[in-house]
Every structure is written in structure tokens, then in C-alpha cells.
Simulated assay, not measured.
Amino acid sequence: MTSHRTGTREEWMATRIELLEAEKDLTRRSDELARRRQEQPWVRIDKEYRFETEEGSATLAALFQGRSQLLVYHFMFGPDYTAGCPSCSMIADGFNGSVVHLANHDVTLAAVSRAPLEKLQAYRRRMGWSFPWASSPDGDFCFDFNVWFTEEQQREGDVDYNYRREARFEWRSGQEGGGAGAEDAFAAMCGTDAATYHRDRPGMSAFVLEDGAVYHTYSAYARGLDGLWGAYQWLDRAPRGRNETGVWWRRRDEYGAR
């Protein structure tokens, strides 16, 4: 016998109509937020970033692949990782189907990580992905767009992520930040320790190319990426919602190993 509230079809319809009005209001507010994102001032990028790609060394402008707009997913995959972040992997599982549609609407979608290109390519083959994925080997791009931090920053509490200053990372003697939390579980899944894992962060950044100049237009981090996490959009509409008590997800080829 279910413990959830039950009712008649008429009662369900009445609550659904009420919910529909709230959903429509959320849609309208989302449309307004999208408009405000597009009205943000553009910031010209004069720094010469270099990336390693399948086609060789490339500039930021080259990542546009001949289009005028570029969306970059900052994928957590540091040089010391043995595999990509499970959360980023779950998000990226939804990229392949979108890339071709975006490309035909003057938008290139690509991922960027600090890991060497060879590691990224091997992991992409494992996951069955085909979207563009570039390596930022010197880390400057990731550092400047606030998705990579140094050990010194961690130790001194000098990390600004998601537009706020974080508390100093807790270093535990003999564990180097290890423990039983979600970050520790993800670190272990990436073959590293929690402190090293936590120096790379997820995010997305948008750029536009106009008259030969590249401009930064938008960046989002942490929960600001929720709308890109396709599986969670489905869960939010499932009967029990996200229904989480801890880290439940894996890379999609690892569920059978649980």
C-alpha cells in the first residue's frame, strides 16, 4: 500500500492545472533570464590561448570551427586523473545528439580539459562520444575561467569558484583531504585523492567571434549547470524525483559493476 497521497482523476486534474500555471510562470522567467544573459556586455579576449586538438595546436578562435559562437564545457579531467569525472561524464552523455543541431545553427559545442589529448581521446572512445574535445595543457585557459586552482590556492583559502570565495580546503594528515564524502568517492573513481580531484571544477563558458575578435559572453558553474544535466531533468519529472541519499551515479559503462 503506497504511503503517498492518492486521489481521484478529478483531484489529480485540479492539482495539475494549478501546477501548470506555476510551470508556465517558470518558463516565462527562464525566457527572461535567457534574454538577460544575451544582454550582458561582451569582454574582448586578447590573450593567446593554445589548445591541443585532433587537428593539432589551435587557438581559441580555431575552436569555433568556422562558426560565430562557441560553447565550451569545462570537463573535470586533470592530468593526474585516470578517467574523467563521473558527474561531467553523465552530463556529457547528452552532448552527441546536440552537437549536430547546434552546428547547423552557427554554434560549436566543445569540451576542454587539462588532461593530455591522448588521455581525452582514449576516454572519449571508451564512452562512445564524438564531440570535439581539446586539451589545455598549460592550464591557463582553465585557470583564467575559474575551473582550475593550484594547491597553494587550496591551502591558503584563495579559491574563487562560482562567483564566491570558498573556505580553505581541509587537509587531513595522512589523507590529504580524503574521507567518506561524495568528493572522496568521485576522486577514487578518477584514480586520485580528494585534494587533487577538487582542484579541477565543472563549468561552461560562451564565446562569440566577430570581426576577427573573440569575446567572452557568459559562464556558469556548479548548480548553474543543472539545465545541461539531461538525466536530472527527467528525474525532476519522475514520481520520486531525484530521490538521492548519496552518490548513486556511475559512468554509464560501470553500472553493471555495482
Rank of each mutant, 00 (worst) to 15 (best):
G139Q: 07
E166I: 03
F145D: 02
E176F: 05
D160A: 04
A195I: 08
D160T: 14
W133N: 02
N146D: 13
F143N: 06
N146K: 11
P132Y: 07
S136W: 03
E152F: 04
S173I: 13
G178W: 00
C190R: 04
E176L: 13
T192R: 00
S136E: 07
A195S: 08
E183A: 14
A185R: 08
A134Q: 04
G181V: 02
S136Y: 03
M127G: 03
D200C: 11
G178I: 02
G179Y: 00
F169Y: 09
G191I: 14
F186E: 06
D144Q: 11
M189L: 14
N162D: 10
F149N: 04
T150S: 15
F145R: 03
D158V: 08
D200M: 03
Y161T: 05
R168P: 05
D140W: 01
T196P: 04
H198R: 13
M204W: 08
Y163E: 13
G177P: 02
G128S: 01
W133Y: 09
R165K: 15
R155L: 14
D140S: 14
T192A: 12
P132V: 12
N146E: 04
S173M: 12
T196R: 14
A187F: 01
W148K: 01
G191N: 10
E176R: 15
W129N: 06
D144P: 07
R199E: 11
W133R: 01
M189W: 00
A167G: 14
S173W: 08
D158Q: 11
